[in-house]
């Protein structure tokens, strides 16, 4: 019994003293010491909590269509914050607070879905192109070249209009146009690793290509790719919001931040006696987007500083 216990403890210690684990705990400690990363983490956690508890925070009128913002009458002009509508209402009396709470879910959905899909395509194409090189690599790279030369926003707008406006279309279009960036990045990482000694050693040991990619190359390059991806969640949401803002999102009244900003465009300037009368319509949704993006950026920034061995010792 005692020997068993002893073995267990030594095993545990052995696990903790493994260089990779030590490295990770060391990095994590530094990550938590950095005030900026704490701020980022807090912001994202708050947003995540809001998204999870959205039905509690803002019970939907229609449980089958919770993303529809309830509206209180049809009056055109927005009304200022009141006990009933803590953040005020937009035009046609859509409740801003409700829109922001359920918009958080939309934002996470947009960000995760687009980045995941792009990452998936990027990892497959990028690792094949980077590892095998040759004509396959050449073709993939020329295609990405062409996509790079396309003006992203304009193409996205035209495509969304072509396949029909709405949040779904925005997600699809951003996947269609977004994969080349990730493919390039992953290919670059893999190219850099491909000729490293430990890969050559694995090859010399007779390992198969697929096995080398999965076991040796991807784990080594995935760190930096994941960090970039986490930062891109913010920017992706930003771009999607920009598309919504330009009038390509869902119909008005859908809980999506970009959509909400676009609805405020007519209310920038108030009546002559109070020019800032409608500030809350303009300020609030945009501010929430900015905070969301800021959170991801701070998180990604700090993660890169901490986990990237090149940046760390400085």
């Amino acid at each position: 019994m005692s020997t068993e216990l002893k073995q267990k403890t030594t095993k545990k210690e052995g696990f903790l003293s493994h260089p990779a684990v030590k490295e990770f705990t060391f990095s994590a400690k530094r990550f938590l010491k950095n005030p900026l990363s704490i701020i980022g983490l807090t912001i994202i956690l708050i947003f995540a909590l809001i998204a999870i508890f959205a039905p509690v925070l803002a019970p939907p009128e229609d449980p089958y269509d919770p993303f529809k913002i309830p509206h209180d009458g049809w009056k055109t002009a927005p009304s200022p914050p009141s006990p009933e509508h803590p953040l005020g209402t937009m035009e046609q009396q859509y409740d801003i607070l409700y829109g922001i709470i359920w918009g958080t879910r939309s934002a996470f959905k947009i960000g995760f879905f687009i980045v995941m899909a792009n990452l998936f395509i990027g990892i497959i194409l990028g690792s094949l192109a980077g590892y095998f090189g040759g004509w396959f690599d050449e073709i993939i790279m020329r295609i990405t070249d062409m996509f790079y030369a396309l003006p992203f926003l304009v193409m996205a707008m035209a495509l969304v209009v072509a396949i029909g406006r709405g949040l779904q279309s925005i997600i699809i279009v951003m996947i269609i146009l977004g994969w080349p960036t990730y493919t390039r990045m992953i290919r670059g990482e893999i190219m850099a690793l491909r000729d490293k000694d430990f890969i050559l050693a694995a090859k010399a040991g007779g390992a198969k290509s697929l096995r080398i990619i999965i076991q040796h190359i991807l784990p080594n390059s995935i760190y930096s790719v994941l960090i970039v991806a986490s930062m891109n969640i913010g920017t992706t949401v930003l771009t999607a919001a920009a598309l919504s803002f330009l009038g390509l999102g869902s119909e008005s009244g859908y809980a999506d931040w970009g959509q909400m900003v676009s609805m405020c465009r007519d209310w920038i300037v108030g009546p002559p006696d109070n020019r800032l009368a409608y500030w809350y319509v303009v300020f609030t949704p945009g501010f929430v987007i900015a905070m969301f993006v800021l959170g991801w950026n701070l998180l990604g920034d700090a993660a890169r500083d901490v986990f990237d061995p090149k940046m760390r010792r400085k």
């Binding site: 919001a241 920009a242 465009r265 501010f287 987007i289 900015a290 993006v293 800021l294």
Partner: peptide
């Protein structure tokens, strides 16, 4: 980091 995070359209509107 703020410049990177601010939505272009929002800053413009503000």
């Amino acid at each position: 980091v703020i410049g990177y995070s601010l939505p272009t359209f929002w800053l413009g509107l503000m």
